[in-house]
Write a protein that binds this DNA or RNA. Structure first.
Lengths: 234, 234
DNA sequence: ACCTGAACACCGTTCAAGT
DNA sequence: ACCTGAACACCGTTCAAGT
């Protein structure tokens, strides 16, 4: 039986979000309905709407809770101390990311449908961006690298990269809305570089990014093939 | 007004699937419900169930119709004639794939949720596999390459690669069910090689594949960084 | 063989009302 | 401030019935 309203502590946003994450872990994302979630919390469905504005907001929040578990890299290691250390640092970050995503198998698919840049998403992107910039990569190369990793590894949707500057954006698509806050210097540096490079362009050139990722892969594969490939190589 | 049952030609599976694709293109995948689709076809919702067994089957069929548009490569070019031509051939295939996926923006996300290996999916994978094998890549390297491309480029789910052999598979996950038909020699060669290499293993080592993809990317990025990177390089 | 009608068990979300 | 009840407009799917 559900706990009586008198004994149950009042709901908070995190309580709701974490219960939703638990439910998705246990029974899959398609089991996460407002009604089932409310039932699990011993509450009537409408009670949830005090803590999330609608189901989109619930999903945004669930993803935030997952991304909050990502290790944004070892903060004790100063990347500029040893610029050549960035590949290992990136590898560590992404392998720990993968562990989190494996614990929440529904997360990647949900991340792919999000077009909002929540603070948690921005903070994570900023941390990874700093690894590359700190390693001496140019803002331009870092930008492309974030696209390759974002799309192919995390599942970030391309819209997430659109128009991070604070420009007019009157007829922007349904993406996000709010500009990048100023405490994400790496992301801002990349955005500034991109708009300096292609002045008229808002957002990114998806065609170019796709070809970049593809050629990067094919080039690597060709080299593996040319050398005497024998598994496992890594 | 909907056409009268007398004047409307009888529905066929393709008619239903193509109408669903059109609807998804026009109003997004979330607009594709059995009821809205039926309405668009001038028919009562239940009439659709003669042509698709349920909504999963509808989505499978829609993806089949999209994948059927993929160009499986230029069949007039014999890959073994010029083994070094495979990177260009792959590039052409994937760029044409991308054009199709761009025309159906909902497709990538739906593909990611499919775990069935429909004949169209198999035929496409077979064609790409043959490009690599024909270029002289080992079955093992081809296998890894298909994982990298499948996951990161097409959105194929990892389950799609599981256990393609015709082994017992009594307690296989909910994936697929039917073994690979024998007219996909490239896929079978890869599967045979994989199970010879890791005898006990059923399916693939996701951890290993992930590290493979990641290291391939990081290695490529490091080299771009080391050389004097200046965009556009491609 | 193909389609229909009524029904069931679900959804997300509104509004006005309760404490 | 937080939760509830009743209601609305949707879902996918069943079954038995129609032509």
């Amino acid at each position: 039986m559900p706990p009586s309203p008198r004994t149950r502590p009042p709901l908070h946003r995190v309580t709701v979000l974490d219960a939703a994450v638990e439910l998705a872990d246990a029974e899959g994302i398609e089991a996460v309905s407002m009604r089932r979630l409310a039932e699990r919390l011993g509450v009537v469905p409408m009670a949830l709407y005090k803590h999330v504005s609608d189901k989109e907001d619930l999903l945004d929040g669930m993803i935030d809770r997952v991304i909050a578990q990502f290790q944004p890299g070892d903060p004790s290691a100063d990347p500029s101390a040893d610029p050549s250390a960035w590949p290992d640092a990136v590898r560590r970050v992404l392998l720990s990311t993968r562990e989190v995503v494996q614990r929440h198998p529904w997360a990647r698919r949900v991340i792919e449908t999000r077009t909002h840049r929540t603070p948690a998403v921005l903070a994570y992107m900023e941390a990874v961006t700093q690894l590359f910039l700190g390693g001496g990569l140019s803002p331009d190369l870092t930008h492309h690298v974030m696209h390759v990793l974002g799309n192919r590894i995390w599942g970030f949707s391309p819209e997430l990269f659109n128009d991070p500057g604070g420009r007019p954006a009157s007829d922007r698509p349904r993406t996000s809305g709010q500009p990048v806050p100023s405490d994400f210097p790496g992301i801002l540096a990349i955005a500034a570089d991109a708009s300096a490079r292609r002045p008229g362009a808002t957002g990114c050139d998806e065609e170019f990014e796709f070809r970049f990722a593809l050629d990067l892969l094919l080039d690597g594969i060709a080299r593996l093939h040319a050398s005497e490939w024998a598994s496992p190589p890594l």
